[in-house]
């Protein structure tokens, strides 16, 4: 009896507050927009048969025909991909440096990487607004050193979005790579050198392949949330920054078009399934390799 309750309580909670809402989104994505409260039709009140009969894929055909949407999906994918690569380029040397640091520093370095996790995401994004704006510190510095004569427009561009994503998701990249590098036996590099590799060759032939799992895990941990990101493009990006999270938000709050917003959400999820499955597979492989 106790076992039943133990399983039932969290189970029912998740069914009611995770699965059912998601099914509702799916259902509404197949409904039509209406000037009513709630602003869509049909609703449950119309009866089950009418409900099923009236559902259609109209919203999805609308999404396919209006190039705003598929451009937003493509642009989200591109921004997420570029930011992931940038985060890898920035994060790998840091993780590598941490793995090479003296034993007694490592705990502190770890804590320094994790600390930003606990501080507000919103504040971390906000911090860049003051730095990147036209009168911001970065432009002041660039002009003072004479690199540029006119302030650079960085805030409200895609560049600012890249910086924001790299900055906020950097710990997600560093930690799995550090974990992989930390496990790496130093004698493997020495063996490679002993067999005739230069240090650089040993790095490419041994260190990189053996930290592959960490690289893959870190990349997905950045790519997946970056794809649906809302706060960063809306604070740092400009009107030209198209990201699907922002589109969904605007569709819902500004246009109050719930069926279209729901359709946008459903497609975003479909896109996310591929990287999520790949990520899962990588994690499983890693777990198996450890056994």
């Amino acid at each position: 009896m106790r076992r039943f309750a133990l399983i039932a309580v969290p189970y029912l909670w998740l069914l009611a507050l995770f699965l059912v809402p998601f099914l509702i989104v799916f259902k509404i994505s197949l409904s039509d927009t209406a000037l009513a409260i709630p602003p869509y039709t049909p609703t449950i009140k119309d009866g089950i048969s009418a409900l099923i009969a009236e559902l259609d894929f109209e919203n999805f055909t609308f999404l396919a025909s209006d190039d705003l949407y598929w451009k937003a999906y493509l642009s989200s994918l591109r921004i997420a991909l570029i930011s992931t690569i940038l985060t890898l380029i920035v994060g790998y040397p840091i993780a590598y440096g941490m793995a090479r640091a003296p034993e007694e520093w490592r705990a502190t370095l770890m804590m320094l990487v994790i600390l930003p996790f606990w501080t507000s995401f919103l504040i971390r994004v906000y911090a860049w607004m003051g730095i990147l704006s036209n009168e911001g510190l970065l432009n002041q510095l660039l002009m003072w050193t004479g690199v540029v004569a006119e302030p650079l427009q960085i805030l409200n561009t895609n560049t600012a979005v890249y910086i924001g994503i790299v900055y906020t998701y950097l710990p997600f990249m560093i930690l799995p790579i550090y974990a992989a590098l930390d496990r790496l036996d130093e004698s493997l590099n020495e063996a490679a050198e002993d067999l005739g590799c230069s240090r650089m060759q040993a790095f490419w032939l041994v260190t990189i392949p053996l930290s592959r799992n960490g690289i893959v895990a870190g990349s997905f941990l950045v790519f997946i949330p970056a794809l649906g990101e809302f706060v960063i493009p809306s604070l740092l990006g400009g009107s030209g920054t198209l990201m699907i999270g922002k589109v969904l938000w605007e569709e819902f709050f500004n246009n109050r078009d719930w069926p279209v917003a729901s359709a946008v959400a459903v497609i975003l999820l479909l896109i996310l399934i591929i990287p999520i499955i790949l990520f899962q597979r990588n994690q499983q492989k890693q777990a198996e390799a450890e056994q």
């Binding site: 036996d185 004698s187 493997l188 020495e190 063996a191 490679a192 041994v206 392949p209 053996l210 592959r212």
Partner: peptide, 9 residues
């Protein structure tokens, strides 16, 4: 090497 240091990949 003592640990053999065989490349696992």
């Amino acid at each position: 090497f003592q640990s053999y240091a065989l490349f696992p990949h």
